[in-house]
Design a protein around this nucleic acid. Structure first.
Lengths: 144, 144
DNA sequence: CTCCGTGCAAAGCATTTGCATCCAT
DNA sequence: ATGGATGCAAATGCTTTGCACGGAG
């Protein structure tokens, strides 16, 4: 497999690691600039494709743009907080019985790896409750 | 609410109705041309936004483009076939217990309306099994 | 007459591609 | 030396916006 660990690729992976929220190509681009070296935006895109193909990162769709997250290799389902963007990983074992039921009842076989659940994380829920603004407009003050 | 049923909007809704697969703005544009009248692409986009805001259509993300589907008003979860694009609706009652479990176990509250399940519909599964191509490249021969 | 709706053209934005250069083996 | 990796610039594709026209009440 042609995945030479060049300086740019190491930088891109570093920008993704230790980050529970997906990042867009542009955000990663800015992040690599923060460190020391500079990586072309084209290289960011090409490297992210390669990493996604290799299964090292998972791709998300946020608004009109794609975002990327360094995920564990073990199969899992994503829980995506629509307020703060936090992503949690849920082991397939936990969702298997549910998906088996869907399979039986709906003649449809779901794929946990592609079936992200969107909602609100506990931290954001509590923050909303604290602010109790009747408008419901949330602050982005989640922990993490 | 400012939703005047103009000729264009009626055409767009007609293009969406009786269609279990989401359609892109361009596909709807072509569909309206098939009938009799012509609707500008800009109007398609603007009308789709209005319909989505009104809750009459649901928005999906397919490859790099947005697609739209005329859905029931009752809350439901979508089952999306990644092979043929078919979308099934599953009543929230069926998924509520599972979401309650996620809430309890993961400190996360999923929203059924935004948590589409991706996988393969029964028809496409059987078609794949029939063709049993070792490559796994599927034909798009689902019923519907 | 007054508004909203419409449509063309142009702009906007994320992403991809062409091609010459660079780097590591 | 050789082949992949890089980066700039240009192109692509979907979507939105500016602005003037049209149509219904």
């Amino acid at each position: 497999m042609g995945l030479v660990p060049t300086q740019q690729r190491v930088l891109i992976l570093a920008a993704l690691r230790d980050r529970e929220r997906p990042a867009s190509a542009l955000e990663i681009h800015q992040r690599t600039r923060l460190h020391n070296s500079r990586v072309g935006l084209t290289t960011i895109y090409r490297t992210l494709h390669a990493l996604a193909d290799a299964g090292l990162v998972h791709v998300f769709s946020r608004d009109g743009e794609l975002t990327y997250r360094h995920c564990r290799r073990e199969p899992h389902q994503h829980l995506v907080c629509g307020v703060c963007g936090l992503v949690l990983e849920r082991p397939v074992d936990a969702v298997a019985p549910w998906f088996a039921q869907v399979r039986a009842e709906a003649d449809f076989v779901p794929d946990p790896g592609r079936s992200d659940l969107y909602g609100t994380c506990g931290a954001c829920l509590r923050a909303q409750r604290r602010d109790h603004g009747p408008d419901g407009i949330p602050h982005d003050q989640c922990s993490g």
